[in-house]
């Protein structure tokens, strides 16, 4: 009688201890994680102009940013004195499939006031809008943002480059794909001024 009661007591105590320790451990891990996230400063490796960077699916080299009056690489100046921000870059597709998601490579951070959020990508080879990049064929591309009328053009442009990682089998369809887009480098480029013709 007393033996079985003792055994029951031991079991109850041990199960309570296990639950308690597990709970405390989970609590410690999650609070540690959120502390780390709060502490970790968002310092990204600096990317110099002209240096190629492998950003997962893309290989990218940023060149020059400048202020222009043209809305496209070869066109005449836009009417009513509109201003544009142009950025020259080289982009190569490192994946094994033709792709058109290059607009996700770059973000302007911190955002520039008056800058149109979605820029146009121009293929310099054709002086036409870029619609896809073929694997293994890098291209010179110009990105053009429109500046709102009256907006103060920025002195310098900070660009954050996003990287993606390849998964041979994704979690949903077990198909290959590129996932986990996150900032991997940042470049600060001076914005060159164009001479204003009298």
């Amino acid at each position: 009688m007393i033996v079985s009661w003792l055994a029951g007591l031991r079991q109850a105590i041990s199960s309570k201890l296990t639950i308690g320790i597990g709970g405390l451990l989970a609590l410690a891990i999650t609070s540690g994680q959120s502390l780390l996230e709060a502490l970790e400063p968002p310092v990204l490796p600096a990317l110099a102009a002209g240096t190629p960077l492998d950003a997962g699916r893309w290989r990218i080299a940023l060149h020059e940013a400048r202020l222009t009056t043209q809305s496209r690489p070869d066109g005449p100046p836009a009417p009513d004195g509109a201003q544009f921000l142009a950025l020259d870059l080289d982009v190569g597709n490192r994946s094994s499939e033709t792709d058109n998601t290059f607009a996700r490579i770059l973000i302007v951070d911190p955002p520039v006031e008056g800058l149109q959020p979605s820029p146009t990508f121009w293929l310099m080879r054709d002086k036409a809008m870029l619609s896809a990049l073929q694997p293994g064929l890098p291209e010179r591309v110009q990105v053009i943002w429109r500046l709102a009328p009256g907006a103060k053009p920025p002195e310098r442009l900070r660009l954050v480059v996003n990287g993606e990682t390849f998964k041979p089998r994704d979690n949903l369809l077990a198909a290959p794909g590129w996932f986990n887009r996150k900032p991997i480098a940042a470049a600060t480029l001076p914005v060159a001024r164009v001479e204003v013709k009298p």
């Binding site: 094994s96 619609s131 073929q134 694997p135």
Partner: peptide, 11 residues
């Protein structure tokens, strides 16, 4: 032959 897939050019 290496397995890369090239979609018909949109140019």
């Amino acid at each position: 032959a290496q397995g890369a897939r090239f979609v018909a050019s949109p140019r």
